[in-house]
Design a binder for these strands. Sequence first.
DNA 1: GGTTGCCATAGAGAACGTTTATGTCAGAAC
DNA 2: GTTCTGACATAAACGTTCTCTATGGCAACC
Lengths: 296, 296
Amino acid sequence: MSERKLDLGWLRIFEAVGRLGSLTGAGAELGLSQPAVSYQIRRIEEQVGAPLISRMHRGCKLTTAGETLFRAVHGGLERIDDAARQVRASLSSPVMRIFTDYGFASFWLMPRVAEFRRLHPGIDVHVVASQGLEGAFDGTSDAAILFGRRADFPGEARLLMPERVVPVCSAGYRARYGPFDDPRSLSRQPLLHLDTVGKPRWLTWTTWLAVQGVEREPAQGDLGLNTYGFVIQAALSEQGIALGWIGLVDAHLAGGSLVAVGPEVRRDDCGYWLVTTGEGNERRKALSDWLLSQPQ
Amino acid sequence: MSERKLDLGWLRIFEAVGRLGSLTGAGAELGLSQPAVSYQIRRIEEQVGAPLISRMHRGCKLTTAGETLFRAVHGGLERIDDAARQVRASLSSPVMRIFTDYGFASFWLMPRVAEFRRLHPGIDVHVVASQGLEGAFDGTSDAAILFGRRADFPGEARLLMPERVVPVCSAGYRARYGPFDDPRSLSRQPLLHLDTVGKPRWLTWTTWLAVQGVEREPAQGDLGLNTYGFVIQAALSEQGIALGWIGLVDAHLAGGSLVAVGPEVRRDDCGYWLVTTGEGNERRKALSDWLLSQPQ
DNA sequence: GGTTGCCATAGAGAACGTTTATGTCAGAAC
DNA sequence: GTTCTGACATAAACGTTCTCTATGGCAACC
């Protein structure tokens, strides 16, 4: 179905008359009667202060003044119509892709994305979760949400969530092996590690303990897992104590399935960053605005 | 006094809103109330199918879609307003200057220019007559009508009147010294020459006689005059026989004050050429059209 | 000479665009 | 914390614009 043209009044009428050399022909094309076209041309001639067409017995011709104005009107209409098409095309792109890691996808994004879809029913959101950064900037995503420090990202990246980490375990675990009033008490427990290839960008148990001034040799009961979902799942099944990122474990803390068992460590320079990929358009901006407006 | 702007409806309103970031401010600039502006923006958003501004509590901002459309509208308005200014500027030049020689001015143009002025009451016509070509192309004239051959003028020059020449004298002169049935009889009469500095571009008696196959020594009674008006005046006062250019002496031939006394010599490559000077505009075109439409 | 088809004008009615009145509300000022 | 300010939104009424049909004029065509 062809798109509906913007109402541009006499501009469309004049352009059609100039192009077709006929008031009747222009009216036929625009769905107007011939006197309506005649009326509009005369009114604009009054505004300009010069004849724009010379009327022949059958048909008409642009005057020199008319040709000058016609070129400008024709060019202007092309630009405005192009812009309208571009706006509409950008509205009809139905899928928004968000690239992120598994942890953020599972614990933060998926629970919330329903609200975005409710606010923007015409938009489908696809979450593209990955282990690393490969594919984050290959142009197929509309936004990337990635963990790292400020210097890891382009200047226009926005901090979505600063890194705030607290040790957590299940309430049952604490009841059985706790209480853990002193950070040093954690060093005697099996700790759950989030493994990665290469140097981790997020806070680790090593760093957490060092901040507390606690020395610990690697205990034999420690567990290493390669996705954060597995880490939380192990904590929930009372296999040890995990690090909990505020923002990701909020629902578990609120529901009581996990409890905090130590002080929070915070690194304001680190966190989840929003990087908008590709050229800005209406939907991408809507997505960014929504992500940035979420309460922390 | 500033010129009156073309009525461009929502285009002006949207451009002002986008530029000022305020519906109230746009209304103030355009002489509209704030609800009128609000109404227009909302209507065009319905037509486009997307929000064009995001409304804040105080003021507004273009959305990404709005920015796309704004650039096109802004550019389009500039072009249309420029064209309107150009059209109006070309209408406000009240004097048309025609550069020509004295002969053409006296015998062809002055008798006819009244008709042009009657057809175009808003235009004053100034005839700038000159002995030579100096000043013809110095930019102060709107048109130049000059005698010469095709190669003497730019490609776009138009032939107004080809050169057709016939010997003429007063009826009284013929009655007294005639008849002149044979071209050779003219060689015994005093001839009236149109003098010029340098080589003449128009047909001369020398050429006319050579075409007839008549040999003639310069007669003692010949007269040389430096304007064509003087030449015709001398012919009318029975001082000799002149060359008469068809187109210039038509009124005298028709009225009987001059009579043709020999065969016509014609040079189709020579004649009066119309050269339009300066850029085309409405009035210059009107002048050219009128000159070219005159019967020969 | 009659027909055709395009442009112009007039009058009436529909649609648009504007105003005034009023409500809402976030930010500024006190 | 309360009050004030000013900008945007909406509703209703009114004025202006735009459109229609009816009709006239007229040059080109048949």
